[in-house]
Amino acid sequence: MSPMRCAALLAGLLIVASAIAGASEDLPREKQRSSYDDMAPATRAMQDADTDNPGMLWVLDGEALWRAKTGSAARACADCHGDAKQSMAGVAARYPAFDAKRGGPVTLEGRINACRVENQNAQTLAYESRELLALSAYLALQSRGKPIAIDEKKLGETIAAGRDIFRQRQGQLNLSCAQCHDQHYGGKLAGNTIPQGHPNGYPLYRLEWQTLGSLQRRLRNCLTGIRAENHAYGSRELIALETYLMWRARGMSMESPAVRP
C-alpha cells in the first residue's frame, strides 16, 4: 500500500472515531442508578448499619482529627468551623467546587489540604493517607442523604474537559469509560455487574481493597485495567473526571461512607 493510502486509511479511522465520540450523550437523570441497588443484601446491610460499616472507623478518626490542634498555628478545624454536623452539612455533596482564588475546581481533599496549609500552617496530607481519608470520610458523612449538586455554571469548562476524558478510548485495550459505564452498565464483566460509575459514596470501603479509598484511587484502578497510562493523584485530568462524574450523578443521594464489592 502506498503511503498515501496509509494516510487515507488513518484519516478514515479518525473520522469514524470522532463520529462515535460525538454520538454518545450524557446518562439521563431518569436512568441514574446507584451501585448500591446492584449489591448483594449482605453488602447493603454492611453499608446500612453504622455499627457494621467499616468506613465508620475512619469517620471516628476523622472526628478526632477535626477537633485536634495541628500545624504550627496550633489550630483545629473545629476552631474555625465549629461543629461539623452544622457547618459541614451538605458541603461534600457540592464538591468538586469552584475555587474563586484559584479560578478553577477544587476537590474535597484539595480543600482540606489548602485549609491545612493556609490556616493551620500544617503539611498537606497525601492521597490515601489514613488522615486524609479520615477527614474526608468525616466531612462526607455530613452530606449523607443529601443530593449531589455541582456548580455547573462555574465549572462548565471542567465538566466538559472531564466528559472528553470519559469518552476518550485509551490504553492497550482501547476502551473509554463511557463504553462500559454509559453503554454497557448492567452487563457482566468477568461475572461482576458493570455499574454506572456514580461517585455518590466516596470515600468508600471497597471489599476488594479491604480498606477505605478515594474516588481517584478507583479511577486509577480502571485506567490500569484498560492498560492505559495513569494520571497522578490530584492531576488536572483526574479532577476534571471527578467533576464530570459528580455532575453526571447530580441529584443522586450521597451514601458516604459507602461499601462496595
Partner: peptide
Amino acid sequence: PDTIMPAYYRTDHLQRVA
C-alpha cells in the same frame, strides 16, 4: 467499527497506552 473488542494484533491508532 465501533466494537468494544480490543484489536489483539495492532499497536497503532491507540492512545495513552501504559
